[in-house]
Design a protein around this nucleic acid. Structure first.
Lengths: 209, 209
DNA sequence: ATATAGTTTAACCAAATGGTTAATACGGAA
DNA sequence: TTCCGTATTAACCATTTGGTTAAACTATAT
């Protein structure tokens, strides 16, 4: 009796996830979510007080998936080269299964940047970031990669992984390809992007002084 | 009498631009736009039949600015290296002055991908694209850059230029920097990105067989 | 069986929102 | 001055939308 039937709650969350990720907070209608879940609209308010709360659940979950998976990948003892390759491959894979994640999160953060403030207090993103930056600096000092600003490099890597998903429909349209060909294109990037980044980091040919 | 007072129409478009770029189609309220323009809500409907039409104007204009500036840059007789550098510098500059453009356009295309179909019929994007791809192929054959898929390379370049703007608020938050420092960061990218791309394209050191 | 607690629904409500209308202000032509 | 067409507004309307309520349903324990 005191136990909540998880299936309904999960059903709603699943439906909300679909609708919110597709239409965003302002574009989503509670009725849409109810329909998608095959339940009455009032039931949404029974489980989740209001639209904002329901949205919050989905947004946090999405932000989590988007940021924490980076943290997890970065936070281990691989070499920089291995790490970069792993980030790209795993991150592109994750996004292939959640292609709407980036645009959704970016759009909602843009709507209200306060949405992230609290988040970073909890997780220790900055800490893990610092460690990664140090590793980059070490590789530079060591001469194994060429001089580059760690934050710039990091944004470069993220850009190359994430942007194609945010721009999915545009890319399909420009290249005149369908969903399936797009997936091939993205699959190809799992090889291309790490190659590209590592090539960009290779120290220039020694000047023969 | 027959002449429309341009100032009011422009005033509305300016206001609509601000509001739509900030909040998107579904998040924008006609009242917001009227307020922003300092006029009555009915006047919006007098000049532009309805919300969709007004939105269409702004969206087309935005898409135009985002895509045509690429075309213009790509369509000249520079060397590939010059062209890449020019694209990055000019495109990042343009986006610095229109930072909301990417997220707005990407989000609205995602909402309704049909919005682009018509657009590509008019412009000859594909044609210019083909020319650019051929130039890349030539450079590869010529051995002046290493083997790389032209579409992948193109998406790489666009990603590196555009993504930081789509992720502006997120980047500020992660790095704990303010608007001004972010602008510095972006300014720095005008150098970093072309450097990065050209380094990635430099042919590998000859294998000494 | 029936009381009880959690679950689900149909019907309803108030506010927000896109859009309309009729009346008014304005500015130049006659 | 007096028209007359354009520009502008206040008031209004219909629909949508987030949210509420009270009743009905379900299952379990006694």
């Amino acid at each position: 009796m005191n136990e909540v039937d998880p299936s309904t709650e999960q059903l709603i969350l699943e439906a909300a996830r679909n609708v919110f990720l597709q239409k965003g907070m302002s574009g989503a209608r509670m009725q849409d979510i109810a329909d998608e879940a095959g339940i009455n609209k009032a039931l949404l308010h029974y489980y989740f007080r209001n639209k904002s709360r329901l949205f919050e659940m989905i947004f946090r979950e999405a932000l989590q998936k988007l940021l924490v998976s980076i943290k997890d990948i970065v936070d281990n003892d691989m070499s920089l080269e291995e790490k970069i390759t792993t980030i790209c491959v795993r991150y592109i894979s994750m996004l292939s299964e959640n292609p709407y994640l980036p645009l959704f999160v970016l759009h909602e953060i843009h709507q209200d940047p306060r949405r992230i403030i609290q988040f970073f207090k909890e997780k220790e993103i900055e800490f893990h970031l610092q460690k990664f930056f140090l590793q980059i600096q070490d590789s530079i000092s060591h001469g194994s990669i060429r001089q580059v600003s760690p934050p710039q490099l990091m944004i470069n890597i993220i850009s190359l992984c994430v942007f194609p998903f945010a721009a999915g429909p545009l890319i399909k349209s420009i290249f005149g390809i369908d969903q399936w060909q797009f997936q091939m294109f993205v699959e190809e990037r799992k090889k291309q992007v790490p190659e590209f980044v590592l090539a960009a980091l290779r120290p220039a040919i020694n000047n023969p002084s």
